[in-house]
């Protein structure tokens, strides 16, 4: 039940884009057409669903203060949490690299659709943000971490798809010249964010 709650919350309320502006760089750059947005969105969902639980395990059994006590009781005082940033980013970057190689080798078709987005993802703040929020919110079990990863990924996908659809239409509108492109995209995202705020307070 708690996991479901986290899942729904991370899609609609704590939406990566609208509430925290995560992954804005690729969000603005890639939301020009629905097709590419779809590719990047799916890649984000995939990578987040895997890396958040993976980092949760690392955090729980290696990094947290006292986390190493499973090796021997004397290790209970070791606190490696200052290393978490570097470990998280290393996990993400190497996972992305790994996926890229595997996909390229075994599914060239998929690679052509998705492959070009994968390197973009290593530096997508949404992915790193997912892991950092996982650490800060201190989820109690793997299931919660996984549903948070999946939910946040879907939330990001949803945001970029909607934005791309809107931008395809906006191309045909009369917009003041200085606002064209980035400017109007920011403002539309802001308005969408306000709309998403109406989901506040949903509790399952």
């Amino acid at each position: 039940m708690e996991s479901l709650n986290i899942f729904i919350k991370s899609i609609f309320i704590d939406n990566m884009v609208f509430a925290y502006f995560f992954g804005m760089c690729s969000y603005i750059a890639v939301s020009k057409s629905v097709k590419t947005a779809m590719g990047l969105g799916l890649a984000v969902i995939f990578v987040m669903t895997i890396t958040v639980p993976l980092n949760w395990l690392l955090n729980e059994y290696v990094l947290k203060g006292g986390a190493l006590s499973w090796i021997s009781p004397e290790m209970a005082n070791v606190d490696l949490s200052f290393l978490s940033f570097i470990i998280f980013i290393a996990v993400i970057a190497s996972f992305v690299q790994l996926v890229e190689m595997v996909v390229e080798k075994f599914a060239p078709g998929l690679y052509n659709q998705l492959g070009i987005f994968l390197p973009l993802i290593a530096v997508n703040c949404a992915i790193m943000g997912g892991s950092l929020f996982m650490q800060e919110r201190d989820f109690t079990n793997l299931g919660q971490a996984a549903s948070y990863g999946l939910g946040s990924g879907i939330g990001w996908w949803l945001a970029i798809i909607m934005m791309a659809a809107i931008r395809e239409k906006v191309t045909y509108s009369q917009i003041p010249a200085p606002l064209k492109g980035a400017g109007i995209t920011f403002i539309i995202t802001g308005l969408m964010g306000i709309a998403f705020m109406t989901f506040l307070g949903i509790q399952l």
Binding site: F18, L179, G193
Partner: peptide, 16 residues
């Protein structure tokens, strides 16, 4: 949060 985006949008507008 959304107002930050709208302000940046306006800054871009003025700047450009």
């Amino acid at each position: 949060p959304p107002m930050a985006l709208i302000i940046v949008g306006i800054i871009i507008w003025v700047h450009r």
